[in-house]
Amino acid sequence: MAITPDSSFFEWVIYITRTYWPLFMRGAQVTLIISLTGTIIGFCIGMIIGVIRTIPIDQNTNPIFRFIYKIINIILLIYIEVFRGTPMIVQAMVVFYGVAMVYGIHLSTLFAGIFIVSINTGAYMAEIVRGGILSIDKGQFEAAHSIGMTHAQTMLNIILPQAVRNILPATSNEFVINIKDTSVLNVIGVTELFFMSKSAAGNNFRYFEVFLVTCTIYFIMTFTVTRILRYLEIRLEGPSVYTIHGSQSVPEAQIRIVDREKR
């Protein structure tokens, strides 16, 4: 069957999907790589900043440390505000062309893409992590301190495991946003899904049909990711039953009790 300008809408959609399938797949792959890597690195940046910004400082802290801490905090605050307060599309332009001009280096577009998504996500995650830490009951800190744990031990063993679990939904959300928002990276020539779609559409001027396919691919990606992350969240909540070890009357008995709160 030959395709002609008079072919029906469905024929065009099928034709485009068949012809440009490899192109779409390469674009989707780049989109996923950038958004996944960017989210992971952004999460790490957010963790580090969130942890730094919740270090308790009081009148008993060494004044030199207090001063250094204050300066670090101001720098971090500027980073967070600037990257949250400007569009990622503009950040992409500034970073990509700025690096080229100042250092005379041409970043690979893939690297530039991951870099921009990472620091952008990091700025959002920093506040999410900080909120996650602050939302943990003060009693958890006090109990840990009362058995002699230092702040670092408390964070590592008690607070962060709880905080990470609480911020998982927000992190999934960031990942989904990143899958969609990497499309702006086409302005610096990153060959992600939107960029690939544009070149496919440019070949035959079938913008509607091409972008309908693109739309479907984006949706499949975000929907799948949402489902997977939701599954992981449930898994992380742990078993909702526990086992009693040897009841008094029957020492070998193992009774399983269903969690009263999760029922």
Binding site: D137, G139, Q140, E142, A143, N157, I158, Q162, R165
Partner: peptide, 8 residues
């Protein structure tokens, strides 16, 4: 308020 570690 007991303050048992909720993650453990």
């Amino acid at each position: 308020q007991f303050n048992l570690f909720n993650n453990l």
